[in-house]
Write a protein that binds this DNA or RNA. Structure first.
Lengths: 329, 329
DNA sequence: GTGAAAGCGCTAACAA
DNA sequence: TTGTTAGCGCTTTCAC
């Protein structure tokens, strides 16, 4: 681990550090052919590797951005992160993904750590609980984009799906198929998208004047879902159609139906939020509400990089429509 | 984005920079009660955030390690990475994941980038094609652990699964069930684990003196699999049992069976390498060969952190046995 | 107990 | 065209 520095290269090549620096930054314009050759040779000879840390300290940019996902186990998070990474790769920027695990304390810790590491900006799936911290970032004019969730009326650019409308559409599809006992199952309503999906669900039922029943609305931690499903399906009027709030809920549902020897769609119809990989290839296939995750990720990256380049970015909400993909085979 | 530096805090508190530095590093032993209070107050008042970049430059450690996964789309990679991250989190080290996308050029680029960023060490799923670079890392005594794949006889600690034995076991299971037309489907044999799985497959068939047929061995890029499967299954003697090399091959298989209206296990028996999420809950369930990904990740992290702490680490191979999970419901 | 000063490896004026 | 110089924000002896 003995380090070769620019000074070593300079000495070896018989030039000054600044000339080497010029060379490394490809400012060859005014550089003698001979000097260039000597420097190149010294570099290969010594096996010199530049130290970006020192450069970043000087330049006050690290060419890194941070992504703080709420929970890395959600497929949506990974799809979005992947799109962000790709976008950044083309701009020679590196994206670092941190998993807040739905924990505001961890979120705070990661935000502070990444800022201390001087990353140039942050894309956050906010837990919504660190209002003070969010405010201080705005105040410091630190580049930030919020993803997926609304957090108070924070004055930041943010990317969201049209959850209310999408849930509405899915339920409407069920209604038009003749279902009247329709359930929605999500994790706890601690974040806005889940609440919005329930909201869309309720609105649709009201619009179609369908008998309303709180027993059909489950919103509990993953660990409680088996029990809750059991309760719901053992009632006198089990649902005939079900909207699952995300991929993790879907997994729990599969677990449940397997245990109960039920089958989809014989025992109930299903639509799942999130474009799960196996939905299209499983038999029978599963209908989904697919969020344009890649597009949303790219937009977030674009808005962030603009801010980093000091271009003005409006602090508004960008709403992306989801696509209801009905699969019946 | 106006920065508050240690100098500002020092001035505000009426002490020197070094005292503030002591304070931040919790070396209060010889620090006056009053001084401490003043510094604390200045920090909160100014909203000071330390700059880890500067600290790292000085200390020559970044408390970051890099993970270079061969392909992030493999579930095994994400499971391993996750375990590494968790292990590091407890040691207050941050892990950065980069995706080489099975491309030696990208791998090289990422290795160099991470080293330039001065990460303290690297865990690599090697493509196996950058021998020179691997050698230079060994020579520089840079902390590295190899994961999943063997690359030449590189003199580094490495973590692998017992691929040959596991594939052997799976095939043996098929044989004992009475199958004689057994196929193995993997991606191209460019990396050691895949070749080893085919090796184990062949050995078992030989040991049981089962008629040997190259048509049952498919190893092609994902994009060619549909075509190859089509060829194999439309022959006079289609296989009755199949070993899928990983989760991505499994997905292609599902796509294929759906298209052909075949069902598993009616049309053929299946065992899949990798502990896929849906295997246990899908109906019918899918048998798997599950690699102890989390354990392997933790071990890799442990070996890397040891090296970083300058503890001696043997450059040997750590072999982890997989578990054959037969699911028949 | 606290401060002064040197320096980590690099960049960017400005001089030459 | 190249070199000199002064930092970037922090840590760390070593004086006081």
């Amino acid at each position: 681990m003995e380090r070769v520095t620019m000074a070593d290269v300079a000495k070896e090549a018989g030039v000054s550090k600044s000339t080497v620096s010029q060379f490394l930054n490809k400012r060859y314009e005014y550089m003698g052919e001979e000097t260039r050759r000597k420097i190149q040779q010294a570099i290969t000879e010594l096996g010199y590797q530049p130290n970006y840390l020192a450069r970043s300290l000087k330049q006050k940019r690290t060419s890194m951005i941070g992504i703080i996902v709420a929970n890395i186990k959600h497929r949506f998070s990974t799809e979005v992160s992947h799109a962000i990474e790709e976008y950044c790769y083309d701009a020679d920027i590196q994206a670092i993904v941190c998993n807040a695990d739905d924990d505001p304390v961890k979120e705070k810790k990661y935000i502070e750590m990444l800022m201390a590491k001087q990353v140039d900006g942050l894309i956050i799936f906010p837990t919504g609980k660190n209002i003070e911290l969010y405010d201080s970032m705005i105040h410091a004019k630190y580049p930030v984009v919020f993803m997926d969730r609304k957090a108070g009326d924070i004055n930041l650019p943010r990317i969201v799906s049209n959850n209310i409308e999408s849930a509405y559409q899915a339920v409407e599809h069920f209604v038009k198929q003749g279902h009247t006992r329709i359930s929605i199952v999500t994790q706890s309503l601690t974040i806005t998208p889940r609440a919005e999906r329930v909201e869309g669900y309720k609105r649709c039922l009201e619009d179609y004047q369908i008998d309303w029943n709180e027993d059909y609305v489950i919103n509990n931690p993953i660990s409680d879902l088996q029990e809750e499903l059991e309760k719901m399906f053992s009632s006198n009027h089990p649902p005939t159609a079900l909207l699952a709030g995300n991929d993790r809920v879907f997994l729990e549902l599969l677990k449940f139906t397997k245990r109960k020897e039920m089958t989809i769609p014989d025992d109930f119809s299903l639509i799942v939020f999130d474009n799960i990989q196996y939905a299209a290839v499983s038999t029978p296939a599963v209908s989904t509400i697919s969020q344009p995750a890649a597009e949303m990720g790219r937009k977030a990256a674009e808005l962030l990089l603009k801010q980093i380049q000091k271009e003005p970015v409006e602090a508004k909400e960008h709403v992306y429509p989801c696509e209801l993909v009905i699969r019946e085979t």
